[in-house]
Structure formats: C-alpha cells, structure tokens
C-alpha cells in the first residue's frame, strides 16, 4: 500500500516537473487559452510599430507551442482562433503605419530637395538671358537624344521578348532581357538628372535676375451673387 502511494506521488511529481520544464522552455506562463488570448488581443490593439507586431506575433506563437506541449492541440487551436482576428487587424494597422511613414518620408524628401535645389540655384554663377537660353536648348536636345535611345531600346526589348517566348523562356535570355530593361531605367534616370539641371538653371536665371515669383495655388474665391442691399425707408412718425 505504502509503495503504491509513493509511486503515485512520484509519478505526480514527475508530471509536475515535466509541465514546469515545458513552461520554462517556452518562456511563457499559461493560464487559460481565453485569458492568454485576451492578453495578446489587448497588446495587438495598442500596436504602434512593425517591431511591436513582430514581438506580439512571436509571443502568440510561444503560447501556441506551449499549449500544444502542455495540454493538447485543441487548446492551442482555441488560442489561435481567439487571437487570429486581432493579429490580422494589427498587421493591417502596421501596413497603414508603413504607408503613412512612406508618405511622410516623401514629403520630407521633397521639402529638403526643393531647398537644396534653391541653394544650388543661388550658388550657381549668374546667367545672362542668352546663356540661359543656350543652356536650356542644350538640355532639351540631350533629353530628345536620350528619349530616342529609350524608344530604340524599347523596340529591341519588344523584339527580344518575342524571341524569348518562342525559345520557351531560357534563363540566359531572361537575364539578357533584364539587362535591356535596366538600360531603359538608366536612360530614364538620366532624363531626370537633365530635367533637374534645367530646373536649377531656370531658378538660377529667375532668382538671380529678380524675376522669380510664387504662383498662387489657392483657388480664387467665387464672387457671390448678392442682391444689392436696399435700406428700407424708415417710417417717420409724425408727432
């Protein structure tokens, strides 16, 4: 009898140790799937960055694994079911934050870019009207030439694409097509550089000759069709 009791006690202790060890291994303390899921949901609702999302997802995964090891697949699935929507929403919020940050970055880049361009225009040596016209014409010609190269490259790409289809998309031809497309991108960025140069020249000429002005972007206020206000004759009361 005594031996049996010891055996049962020993077995219980062993199970407790195994359970404790598995909790320590997963690094999370389990309560119930509902309570733990609620904890994850609350954390997911207050998400503010991609790093936070990643750490919450990692924690949720730890819970899932711990539930699977400690109890059974059903508890783990229950936990997953309860947290799924909140994590998906958090991921969406994260995407929105990402998009907003990109938009802000673009605004900041435009801001500093415009100021740098103005600085370049002021730092540029002054241009006479003739010099300015000549430089602009030169740049227009450069753009025309690059555009012609782009057209030619695009025609070559089209012809090569047809050959590629006929050949059944071999890797070497795909690589070659990639190179051809890169060439077009290079030409396009060259155009941007020249256009930027022209913009600096225009600003240089206008700013340094004192002809620059800021064009109003505000829409003109519509003039309301008001009827002329006519004063009503005051009644004079004869005393």
């Amino acid at each position: 009898m005594k031996r049996k009791i010891f055996a049962i006690l020993g077995y219980t202790a062993l199970v407790a140790v195994v359970l404790l060890l598995s909790q320590c291994e997963s690094g999370v303390t389990l309560t119930t799937p509902k309570k733990d899921a609620q904890r994850i949901i609350t954390m997911a609702q207050g998400i503010e960055s991609e790093e936070e999302l990643k750490s919450i997802e990692k924690l949720a995964r730890k819970y899932e694994i711990a539930y699977e090891r400690m109890y059974n697949g059903a508890a783990s699935l229950e936990f997953k079911r309860l947290t799924n929507d909140a994590l998906r929403e958090a991921s969406q919020i994260c995407d929105d934050i990402h998009a907003k940050n990109d938009q802000l970055k673009a605004l900041q880049d435009t801001f500093s870019g415009s100021l740098d361009m103005l600085d370049a225009a002021w730092s540029h040596e002054a241009l006479s009207a003739e010099q300015y016209d000549e430089a602009i014409k030169k740049n227009e010609l450069r753009v025309k030439k690059i555009n012609a190269k782009i057209k030619q490259a695009e025609a070559e790409i089209q012809a090569y694409s047809d050959k590629l289809i006929e050949a059944g998309y071999p890797a070497d031809m795909l690589e070659e097509l990639g190179k051809m497309k890169e060439e077009v991108t290079k030409y396009e960025s060259m155009i941007k550089v020249v256009e930027n140069e022209s913009r600096v020249l225009t600003l240089t000429y206008r700013l340094q000759s004192g002809n620059a002005s800021v064009e109003s972007t505000e829409p003109e206020e519509p003039v309301a069709d008001e009827e002329p206000i006519t004063e009503e004759p005051q009644e004079q009361t004869a005393e």
Partner: peptide
Amino acid sequence: DYEIFLQSANEVLSNIK
C-alpha cells in the same frame, strides 16, 4: 499638423515661376 506644414511649404517651393 506636421504633414500639413510640409505640404503647404512644398506647394509654395514648387511653384516658383
């Protein structure tokens, strides 16, 4: 508000004629 600040400034800076 910061975004609006940048947008307003950018609009002026890009409209120098």
